[in-house]
Design a protein around this nucleic acid. Sequence first.
DNA 1: ACACGTGTCCTATGATTCATGTGACACGTG
DNA 2: CACGTGTCACATGAATCATAGGACACGTGT
Lengths: 127, 127
Amino acid sequence: MLPFPLQIQPGLPISEQLVYAVKKAVISGLLKPGSKFPSVRAVSHELRIHPNTAHKAIGVLVGEGLLEVHPGIGTIVGKIPSAPSAKELKLLEGEVERLVVEAKNRRLRLDDLQRMVERQWNRLTSH
Amino acid sequence: MLPFPLQIQPGLPISEQLVYAVKKAVISGLLKPGSKFPSVRAVSHELRIHPNTAHKAIGVLVGEGLLEVHPGIGTIVGKIPSAPSAKELKLLEGEVERLVVEAKNRRLRLDDLQRMVERQWNRLTSH
DNA sequence: ACACGTGTCCTATGATTCATGTGACACGTG
DNA sequence: CACGTGTCACATGAATCATAGGACACGTGT
């Protein structure tokens, strides 16, 4: 069994769903830094997807520092996520802007949105 | 000239970029409720895109209540954006979750994120 | 030395989405 | 009736996505 939950659904690319599932598992403590991450072939076999698709998702996660690859040995969960770079902060700003635009068009108030953020934040807290 | 700014860039679907540009223009007061919205052909001509592409974006905006269509006459900016339905709230929850997941993986703190939200909120305020 | 599992890469194919091309129709205004 | 409006129905080419099948280099274990 995979160390993280994922039910693949149509509508979004499979590789993106896999990336997101791993990100959620990492921050929720399901995947602990330094622990082994399933091999490309194991992931593809469990999820019934093609190895290339799993490999693509893992490549994204490696690029973001969430996973570390050791050739010939395997892949482990990244130990120390680096502090946000200027580039990453700019990307986050863009995502925040998108969210605020949606919220404003739905006629939410700032404190409504803040409460939603805080609720999701606490819900995704490891413990 | 179009009543809203938009510089089409590669990487995202053109229709999505158009939808987002209009949403931002609406909440920033550039497009006022009740005012006329450019015709499908005018938008496609100004942006150098295909009428079908502009029509697709406008269709999305109509579906969300931001624009109102009067057949044979034209399209205007929606007057009264409805209160968020349960379905819309659920979609927003999902977007908030995505943002929180990204922020946590970048090792931001809750108040860091809250500040970013508040800043974007004030930046996108009309007047 | 050898087999095995690991990550990585290559070429190819079919499905889907996206943007465009082209043409047409119904509606309301003048 | 002409005109501009929104709307729709095909079709085509490009790009993305997932799949298929095979191959190679690396490190570990026997």
